Amino acid sequence: MNKHESDIHFDGLASKFATNIYGTTKGQLRHKVLLHALDTHLHATPMRVIEIGGGTGLMTKAFLSAGHNVVFTDASAEILAHAKVNLAEMENVTFRHQTLQAVTDFNQFDMIICHAVLEWLHTPLDTLSIILNEMKAGSFLSLSFFNHDAALFTNALYGNFDYIAQGMKVRNQVRLNPKNPLRPQQVIEHVENSGLYVEQVTGVRCFHDYMKGKPADDHQLKQLLDLEINYCQQTPFKWFGKYIHLLIKKPH
């Protein structure tokens, strides 16, 4: 497996990862907004799909359930083992213990899914170029990443002015705290300069992370989800998203 020594993976943290990321309202909202952003492609003619850094397998499961063939990859052997259990009853899935940098067949897929991966890498934009350069004509990339601008805004709200002044870098990296949040416009420019099109921009959790109190019950959570869905692709709200999702197409 090829990886930069400073890239962050989740061996030894699989259970904590599953609990912190997917066992919370923020994880549930993130997944549902991403499903909304991908709805047209989920229900399209069956495709060959590869997911990079698939985590516990939630997104892969959605694509498998919709009739697509999926190659699931993750750089963490422990995460991969969890995903195999979660997807044990699903058909048309292949598992690979593999980093993004080690994938050599991006040009074989109609859809590439890369969600919440770039911000954990030492050189995120250079690594993104690996995908952009190797995609086949007419294929799509579903890309989401931790929004640097939203992180700065959140830290300002909490009065973390010294942290902002230091460039939001800390000496001791918290393992579940992304090391390289990305500015949306910088990523969009990188994609367009590579000759690809950004067909859709979606903000993920445009409101949830700024609320003083989180949803008290399922009814409030449903109301919040409806609000997130209604505004996640509208300006200016989409740019407030804690994550940004880009649907990218490589032209024929």
Rank of each mutant, 00 (worst) to 15 (best):
H82N: 13
G67V: 03
I52L: 04
A77W: 05
A102D: 15
L38R: 12
H41C: 01
T73S: 15
A66V: 01
E51W: 02
T45H: 15
E91C: 09
G57D: 03
N107H: 15
L38M: 13
I112C: 05
V93I: 13
A102M: 07
I52Q: 00
D74Q: 10
I112P: 03
A81M: 08
T60F: 00
A44Y: 04
M90V: 07
L35S: 10
E89S: 14
N69I: 08
H43A: 10
A75G: 15
D74H: 05
R48P: 00
T94E: 13
I79R: 11
L64P: 09
H82D: 12
T104I: 06
E78Y: 06
T56D: 06
V71D: 08
I113P: 03
N92V: 09
P46L: 06
V103K: 00
M90S: 12
G67I: 05
Q101H: 05
I79H: 09
H43P: 02
G67M: 07
V49L: 04
Q108R: 11
F72M: 09
L35H: 04
R96H: 13
F106C: 06
T56Y: 01
T99D: 03
A81I: 06
V49S: 04
D110Y: 05
N92M: 10
A37M: 11
E91R: 13
D39R: 14
A44I: 01
A81G: 05
D39G: 05
Q108H: 12
I112L: 08
S65I: 10
D110N: 14
K61G: 11
H41P: 01
G55T: 01
N69H: 14
P46W: 08
A88L: 12
R48Q: 13
E51Q: 06
D105V: 08
D105R: 09
A75E: 00
T73Y: 02
N107A: 14
F109G: 02
D110F: 02
I52P: 00
M111D: 04
T45G: 02
G53F: 00
Q98R: 11
G53Q: 01
T73A: 05
V71A: 05
T94N: 11
N69C: 14
M47Y: 08
V85A: 09
H97E: 11
G54W: 00
L35T: 09
N69A: 14
T94F: 04
I113S: 08
L87K: 09
T104E: 15
N92S: 14
S65C: 12
Q101W: 01
G53Y: 00
T60S: 15
T56S: 12
V70H: 10
N86L: 09
F106S: 04
A66K: 12
Q98P: 05
A75M: 00
V93D: 02
T94Y: 04
E78W: 04
D74M: 03
H41R: 13
F63N: 09
A102T: 07
Q101Y: 02
A37K: 11
A83L: 02
V70R: 15
H36N: 12
N92T: 10
S76I: 00
G55S: 05
A81C: 09
T99S: 15
I112S: 04
